[in-house]
Amino acid sequence: MAIHAISLIVNGTKEQVQVPSNMTLIHTLREKLGYTGTKNGCEAGECGACTVLVDGEPVNSCLVLAVEMDSKEITTIEGLADSGQLTPLQEAFAELNAVQCGYCTPGMLMAATALLSRNPYPSEGDIVEALVGNLCRCTGYQRIIDAVQKASRNGGAR
């Protein structure tokens, strides 16, 4: 299989990496670059655990090939908190216990971050629509909705 040299900007850092044609972004992030905060839940785009931002848009990283990502800006969960300072969304998820096992949390936070950056004051319906592709088996979702609303009041995605 052909190997491609690509460059990505991950959380602001330029990364150069060699990937086979069939390697998806999630495997590139996790196995080639060590960004293991992004979680693999189904590899079929059905659970949202692997959501990252590509040029600011939420994307299931299991559904896109790494070669298509050449020169794109990727944000993963590791890129949210800046030198120890949590974003209002991370703070709200922590304060409201919108987290249990934590496996869906990175994807949930990335999808919610994208929502708040395009719509800083979402309605409950907007939140539900934005997160309907992110499954969680633990929390029952209500606290996730509450946390996004709280973060929206406290300054949005930032």
Binding site: R30, G34, Y35, T36, G37, T38, K39, N40, T76, I77, E78, L80, A81, L86, Q90, F93, A94, E95, N97, V99, G102, Y103, T105, P106, L109
Partner: peptide, 21 residues
């Protein structure tokens, strides 16, 4: 009181078995 594991879980630092290198 806050969960002991929550900061790790909201920052992507929580280690699950598939994350071990």
């Amino acid at each position: 009181v806050p969960r002991t594991d929550v900061i790790d879980k909201v920052t992507g630092c929580a280690v699950f078995v598939d994350d071990i290198q």
